[in-house]
Amino acid sequence: MDNNAILNVAHLNIKFGGIIALKDINFHVPRASITALIGPNGAGKTTVFNCLTGFYKGGPGSKLTLSSKNKSNNLVEMLGEGFKLQDFINPPAFVKRIYFKMFGGTHLVCRAGLARTFQNNRLFEEMSVVENLLVAQHMSLEKSLLKGVFQTKDYLESQERALDKAHDWLKFFKLDKRANDIAGELPYGEQKRLEIARAMCTSPELLCLDEPAAGLNPAESAELSELIIRLRDEHRISVLIIEHDMHLVMKIADHIVVLNYGEVLFDGTPAEVRNSSKVIDAYLGKE
């Protein structure tokens, strides 16, 4: 286990019925770096994402450790894993398990500092761009009903802070002119950027991007890769990215993990991946 890593994935496995979607995946994401997850269609890249962010629960033995916000978070536990025999002898562990069963889930993963975007945009289409970003800051806003109804000073201050933050990220993603437009009416490229901006508003330390460049033209794609590099360099965000655009991946990634048929095929720097015969075989087939 690498102590400098923000995310450690160990022995991740998952089955859907009889199909083994992932078996014994091991990799780590170094802090403040860009790690790409690539592989042919159906290799299990999005499944890895869904396990990380809690939409799927990893099978027994899976260990996902997110070292963020100055502590080490056990993601599998947060999602409310099943009871184990030793829980029945150990009351504190039992209570903890029940707590996460009732109140655990995806949202805790996000609060621990892992934000994600989706392969198909999942914006709040009928809300304005700023509102999309405000929803993402829900946890840091003043939520008391009475304070909101009477508009107390700290309520207004927290609202003001949230708006400032939203505008900062809108500027970063060059969307500031769109602040008061309806999110669903933005062009596709801007929607993609908005989704990343929204994820950034949750103050993550690790950002998981699921095919951010899909459907973008070369100019938009180049702009996006520049933005992702700036996220790493200026904001010290660790990025885990799934992408099919090899040009973009080779340009921005510090580290590449190649998946094939639910297994890690290769793990290394872009140059190593480019020269690996195993990876070339997986993509192009063997002679």
Binding site: G54, T106, H107, L123, F124, V135, M139
Partner: peptide
């Protein structure tokens, strides 16, 4: 609008 997106944003 979107329950899955909401969950992924920590709600």
């Amino acid at each position: 609008e979107d329950e899955i997106a909401c969950r992924s944003l920590g709600l």
